[in-house]
Design a binder for these strands. Structure first.
Lengths: 339, 339
DNA sequence: TTTTGGCACTCACCCTGCCCGAGTGCCAGC
DNA sequence: GCTGGCACTCGGGCAGGGTGAGTGCCAAAA
């Protein structure tokens, strides 16, 4: 177990390194922080911290920098979540109010987060499976061609074109539309499959049954597809503030960010409730091994419908970032609840 | 007027520089290209080309690199558009077939373009004003709250929540929906304003008129808003291949790419028909002064509904890039026409 | 008039050796 | 257990010399 003072030294190292981006030595530490001990003592403490794997030296005779393990300890035990300042809070409101639709909300959120944290922001669209159905619309584009439009309570709209096996009358269409809606509106998407499974049988005409089956198949497919998970990223220009070695770091990170699958997995791995911080190599993806990901769920009610977060260098201001991420998530939740 | 051989020298310089990314000297030129003259002659030609502003030296006693003006001449007079190879053509088809909706088409296109050109790809969503109306849907979310859903022939879907001044009956709603659709379906969005301007008067109830006005106002607003112009970008990881000085270049470019407004203006400035190539400082935006933008319109019919293109270093393979951009645009047009 | 070979010149780049200073580890003393 | 002192290490910055690609110019050849 590390003594109180050693923890204090670690905290000081993390704070200084985050601020200066340079390895921090014992002398500088005692000057900037009131530790009440001499550099020599700090050196001894540092030696212990290094032995335990919390800090490391880039090379002999350089200062120390925190390791992933060091940041982990810092986040878990040494740092709180810094609440936002009033201007920042006001900025969130100003920025997010006045969004006209879901795309707009997500777009604004991503820009806001990027600006606030000065890092790369990632915002997931509300998940279909955790939303409820607001309306299902069926339009005849041609006699044997339908368009299915799904609208969720979170404002998300999905559409698919369906090629039907046989022409489908306007009456049957209205009928199907009505039955479909009466069954699923207000229900959660996750429950939809079992709510509609007997629909085809309730139609008399054989051709109609076939068409109904096709429609339902498309509907269900729309619900389960991985494609349903969309997200938006922004603030990639902040990658250039990664540090002096950014030319080396930036490429794998950009590549990882381009792979939506990777990002979705990243967010998916985060805890369902509360904030998640994944530091450096804790991230499964190779290219992100020198980044940290701070993510949190957001939603209109108590329940999270999706996640959002930021990706930045492991050397980031954790308290501030966590504060911004949490504040934004809360307010986006409110916005969604209102619309 | 430059002699034939001097043009040939310029072409050789551009080709070599694009390939090697290094200033090209007279000796290397005569070795790699069969110019039929000695290095000394080439040197004289280079001196002339430099005087005319087509090439420049980074510093005394280095080779020459093309200037923006040099690239311009190269693109206009010296280079054709390189047709794609069969595998590339097949890749386009494989990649783009099987897209389920418009988002998917745009997303795949952007990834495809980025991969093919190894540069940053930008794809604009089909413009609303140039599309035709496929359907207008009005849903009652609450007695005095409607959702307006617009569907275009290009598969684009826009929605807006409308707060009405007064409750609106289901009958009136159906009535409005029917009238709206009968007037605008199949028409171009640009024509919608004048097609619906007299709608409010045709309703008897005063309250209904107010609501109808509100709905129409929202509808028209949706059409004209700058917000209607959406786009998607991808392949930003390719920025890391910008050249040795990429750390300096990448930030302004990333910043410019984050500003959708900038990109929209960029595409907007391009010619309506045919391919547009803007080289270096020809781009209005400061941050893009060392990039070139190759863009072209695409659409389902003969008419362009939106544009797509790539952003890359001025030192790019123009013939290849132009070939890829054109080929992709053509095929996306086909896809849209089919759906 | 144009092309060519020759020649002196100019830099960017690389390698080397050097010094400097920040930072360390260790040890003896408090 | 803390502190001050001291020798040691090593990265970074700076100056200097060599190298080579590339140039401009000029006189001779085509």
């Amino acid at each position: 177990m590390l003594s109180e003072r050693r923890l204090e030294v670690l905290r000081a190292i993390v704070q200084d390194y985050v601020g200066t981006e340079e390895p921090v030595g014992s002398k500088a530490l005692t000057e900037r922080h009131k530790l009440g001990v001499s550099p020599a003592t700090v050196r001894n403490d540092m030696a212990v911290l290094e032995e335990e794997g919390y800090i490391a030296q880039p090379h002999t005779s350089a200062g120390r920098i925190p390791t992933d393990k060091g940041y982990r300890l810092f986040v878990d035990r040494l740092a709180g979540v810094k609440p936002l300042s009033t201007p920042e809070r006001r900025a969130i409101h100003n920025f997010l109010d006045g969004a006209v639709d879901l795309d707009d909300v997500v777009g604004r959120t991503v820009r806001l987060l990027a600006q606030l944290t000065r890092q790369v922001a990632v915002v997931q669209y509300p998940s279909l499976t955790r939303s409820t159905v607001r309306h299902v619309e069926l339009l005849a584009l041609a006699p044997a061609r339908l368009m299915l439009v799904l609208i969720t309570d979170t404002g998300r709209v999905e559409q698919r074109v369906i090629d039907c096996p046989a022409p489908f009358g306007e009456t049957s269409l209205a009928d199907l539309r009505a039955r479909l809606n009466s069954r699923v509106v207000g229900r959660r998407f996750a429950d939809v499959p079992q709510l509609v499974q007997d629909l085809p049988e309730s139609f008399e005409e054989i051709e109609d049954r076939a068409t109904v089956s096709t429609v339902l198949a498309t509907l269900l497919e729309t619900l389960v597809e991985e494609h349903e998970e969309r997200l938006m990223i922004g603030g990639t220009a902040n990658l250039t503030r990664f540090g002096h070695d950014f030319p080396l770091m930036i490429r794998p990170v950009l590549e990882a960010l381009e792979e939506q699958v990777v990002l979705l997995k990243l967010l998916g791995e985060a805890k369902e409730s509360g904030m998640t911080v994944r530091i450096g190599h804790e991230n499964a993806h190779e290219g992100l091994s020198s980044t940290s990901v701070v993510s949190v769920g957001y939603g209109s009610g108590g329940e999270a419908v999706a996640k959002l977060g930021v990706v930045g260098p492991t050397r980031m201001d954790y308290p501030g970032t966590m504060g911004a991420v949490r504040a934004v998530a809360r307010y986006v939740g409110q916005i969604l609840a209102e619309s």
